[in-house]
Design a protein around this nucleic acid. Sequence first.
DNA 1: GCCAACGTTGGC
DNA 2: GCCAACGTTGGC
Length: 137
Amino acid sequence: MQYWLFKSEPNTWSWEDQVAKGSVGEEWDGVRNYQARNFMRQMQIGDQGFFYHSLKQKSVVGIVEVIATAHPDSTTDDPRWECVDIKAVKSVSQPVSLSQIKERIDLADMVLIKNSRLSVQPVTYQQWAIICEMAGV
DNA sequence: GCCAACGTTGGC
DNA sequence: GCCAACGTTGGC
């Protein structure tokens, strides 16, 4: 079991949109970045991830689960791009903001901080546990 | 709205 | 294969 972080602009695809899809889930399409794609290729069904809102909110707002491994991205004919499917598991009771994460020295190594532009990122179990605690999960 | 950081593209 | 130019992302 591995842990990840999925970043989305709420204007484009929000947590509310994800929740509305229920257990059917939705593909995490539109990724046009090799690093992000490579992480998605590593994902297994049952892996869990944080759903992060960028831009205005800049917070971890929910927990998602991988329900389909990497497959061609239906939004492009370009065979280079793949995506996984994820479903919403639960909303966090306390969104964890980027500034809160930055305050924690034990989260200083997070990819979110070191490479803020990467839209799909790995999260270590330790980081996962710390943020779950902060989020009241 | 600005700008820094980063990734991609294309000319050489 | 290098690197300049360009486009995009996301924090501020």
